[in-house]
């Protein structure tokens, strides 16, 4: 009977200021996904229609923080996930989007929404539905406590697989030199 089956490990994932490449790398475990599904179930992820993160064992977060909405979602993940993992360069350092940190927002806005040559008429979007962009892009650990950092842009599927299977087996994840990559 299923009453003796061990409880599945519950995982949530989200993308903040990321490109979804880290999520694609999770899917790059290919058919190992089906083996994983024997041991885990998904809470909020871009693959399910759960819109808010509930209590979870593991939270995987891709992307840095670029607006108020990201801060909100990240805190929700931290509150609900026993283990919070910064997945990929953007989550670990801010990544490529942090290249804008030395620029002036007003300048950028003007160029993209007002003076760009292909525009018929310019204006700067200002509706309250649009979350407040932050002046700088921040890595996750500047805002919440992060338990593990997986470098790489993105971390490879093998890296993610080794990390998750170690955690699921109750081991401290150990990535050899060949699985820690920064490209």
């Amino acid at each position: 009977m299923s009453t003796h089956e061990p409880r599945k490990v519950r995982i949530a994932t989200t993308s903040l200021a990321g490109c979804f490449g880290c999520h694609m790398s999770i899917l790059d475990i290919d058919e190992r996904l089906f083996a994983l599904l024997e041991h885990v179930e998904f809470d909020r992820t871009p693959l399910t229609d759960i819109k808010h993160c509930g209590p979870c064992d593991i939270g995987l977060v891709e992307g840095g923080i670029c607006n108020a909405e990201n801060v909100h979602v990240l805190r929700e993940f931290r509150r609900n996930c026993k283990i919070l993992v910064a997945v990929g360069a953007c989550a670990v350092t801010g990544g490529l989007p942090a290249q804008r940190n030395h620029l002036d927002l007003a300048d950028c806005l003007q160029e993209v929404y007002v003076t760009e040559i292909s525009l018929a008429s310019g204006m700067i979007p200002n509706d309250p539905e649009l979350p407040l962009p932050l002046d700088k892009v921040h890595p996750l650990h500047e805002v919440v406590k992060v338990d593990y950092f997986l470098p790489g842009c993105p971390p490879s599927a093998d890296t993610i697989w080794k990390f998750l299977t170690d955690l699921l087996a109750g081991r401290t994840p150990h990535l050899g030199a060949e699985l820690i990559r920064y490209d």
């Binding site: 993209v112 700067i124 309250p128 406590k145």
Partner: peptide
Amino acid sequence: ALGRMPLRVELIDAGGDTIEVM
């Protein structure tokens, strides 16, 4: 593209310090 800021938010770090106010 980049957008403008319609609100005010404070970004507070894990230790409770304000790191950014918009």
